[in-house]
C-alpha cells in the first residue's frame, strides 16, 4: 500500500460510522441425551441470537475508543463487522468511507489488527521472516518498511526477538511483535482485540504506553477491546459499552463514573477496634484499627464525616481514594444482569 492509496480520506472527521446495525445468528441447540441422537440428526433445534440490536456510533480520526462489555455482549461481533469479516443483517457499517465487506482488499490495506488470542506471526519462522512476509503481501515500500521496523525495534523492543522463532517467544514478546507487525504499513485505524490478555503487569504497561504514544500523534485512530477496565481507562478517552447487543453507554470515563455511581473509599485508622458510625458512609470492613467505608460519589462531605468520627474515637490516619473502575463496571454488569430480560444471551 502506498501513500497515494490514502488520497481522498479527510485528515479529520468521522472514520468509523455504524448506523442502526443489527446482527443475528442462528445457533444449533443439540440435545446431549443419547436417545435424542436421531432427533438431533433429522430435526435439529435452533435459536436465533441477536448479537447486535440497532447499534449506532461514530468514531473520529485520532480518537482512542474503548469498546467494552461483558462476555457475549457483542464486542467481537462488532469488531468483525468493522474488519469486514461479517456483514450486518441490517444497518450500515462504513469505515474510512468504505464498506468493509465490499471494499475489503482496499480497506484492509489501511487498517491494522491485533488479536490477543490470534497471532499473525509465522509459527516456525523468526520474527524477521514474518515482517518480510508482511512487507511483500501488503506491498509496503522499502523506505516505510525500514522506518517502521525501526519503530518496532525501538518502541516495542522487537529487536531482542528479531531472529527468534515465533513459537519460542514469550506471550509478551509475541504480542509486541504482533503489534509491531500490525503497524508496519502505518494503518490509519488500529483495531486491538484484547491486546493485553494474559500479559504480565510490565508487558501490559509497555503495551499501554505504546498505544498512547501512537495515539498522541493524532494520525492513528485506535479501537480497543479489553476486559481490563483500568487499562482501558488509561488508554482511551472514550468508552462504548455494549450489553446484550445493545449500545448501553457512549461517553468518557468520568461521565461513566458519574452516571453509574462514582464510588469513593474512606479509610480511617483509629485507636478503637470498633468502627465509628458514619451516616452516609457504608462500612465495607474493618481490619484491626483500620476501617474502610464506601462513599456515594459527589454527595458525601468528608470533612463532616471526619468530624463525626473524631467525636467517637481518635482518628490516627485518613486515606481517601476513588474506587477502581473495575468496581464501577462490576456494579454496572450486576445491574444489567438483574434487569436483563429473560431469553437474552
Amino acid at each position: 500500500m502506498h501513500r497515494s492509496d490514502r488520497a481522498g480520506t479527510p485528515a479529520s472527521g468521522t472514520v468509523v460510522e455504524c448506523r442502526a446495525v443489527c446482527k443475528a445468528f442462528r445457533q444449533r441447540q443439540p440435545s446431549e441425551r443419547p436417545r435424542d441422537l436421531l432427533r438431533n440428526l433429522l430435526h435439529p433445534r435452533f435459536r436465533t441470537i441477536e448479537a447486535l440490536r440497532d447499534v449506532s456510533f461514530t468514531v473520529n480520526r485520532g480518537e482512542v475508543v474503548a469498546y467494552a462489555g461483558p462476555n457475549g455482549a457483542g464486542k467481537s461481533t462488532t469488531i468483525k463487522l468493522l474488519l469486514g469479516m461479517l456483514a450486518p443483517t441490517s444497518g450500515s457499517v462504513r469505515v474510512l468511507g468504505m464498506d468493509p465487506v465490499d471494499d475489503r482488499t482496499r480497506y484492509v490495506g489501511r487498517i491494522g489488527v491485533v488479536f490477543g488470542q490470534r497471532t499473525e506471526l509465522w509459527w516456525d519462522h523468526p520474527v524477521a521472516a514474518s515482517y518480510e512476509w508482511k512487507r511483500v503481501v501488503w506491498d509496503i515500500p522499502r523506505e516505510r518498511f525500514d522506518r517502521m521496523c525501526g519503530v518496532a525495534r525501538e518502541l516495542l523492543g522487537v529487536g531482542e526477538s528479531w531472529n527468534t522463532l515465533a513459537r519460542e517467544l514469550s506471550l509478551g514478546q509475541r504480542m509486541r511483535a504482533d503489534l509491531g507487525m500490525a503497524m508496519l504499513h502505518e494503518p490509519e485505524i488500529l483495531f486491538l482485540d484484547e491486546p493485553t490478555l494474559g500479559l504480565d503487569v510490565l508487558a501490559k504497561r509497555s503495551m499501554t504506553r505504546l498505544v498512547r504514544q501512537l495515539s498522541a500523534t493524532g494520525s492513528v485512530t485506535v479501537m480497543v477491546t479489553s476486559h481490563d477496565m483500568n487499562e482501558l481507562e488509561q488508554l482511551a478517552g472514550r468508552v462504548i459499552f455494549i450489553e446484550s447487543g445493545n449500545l448501553a453507554y457512549d461517553g468518557d470515563f468520568a461521565s461513566l463514573r458519574r452516571e453509574f455511581g462514582d464510588l469513593r473509599r474512606l479509610v480511617l485508622e483509629t485507636d478503637s477496634a470498633t468502627p465509628p458510625s458514619l451516616p452516609g458512609a457504608e462500612l465495607v470492613g474493618s481490619h484491626g484499627l483500620r476501617h474502610e467505608y464506601r462513599l456515594a460519589g459527589g454527595g458525601a462531605d468528608v470533612a463532616s464525616l471526619l468530624s463525626l468520627a473524631g467525636e467517637q474515637c481518635r482518628v490516627l490516619d485518613v486515606e481517601t481514594h476513588r474506587a477502581p473502575i473495575d468496581e464501577v463496571i462490576a456494579g454496572i454488569y450486576e445491574h444489567w444482569g438483574r434487569t436483563r430480560p429473560a431469553g437474552t444471551p
Partner: peptide
C-alpha cells in the same frame, strides 16, 4: 479471518 485481513 487471517486471510480476510490481507489486502488481496
Amino acid at each position: 479471518d487471517h486471510i480476510l485481513v490481507q489486502p488481496q
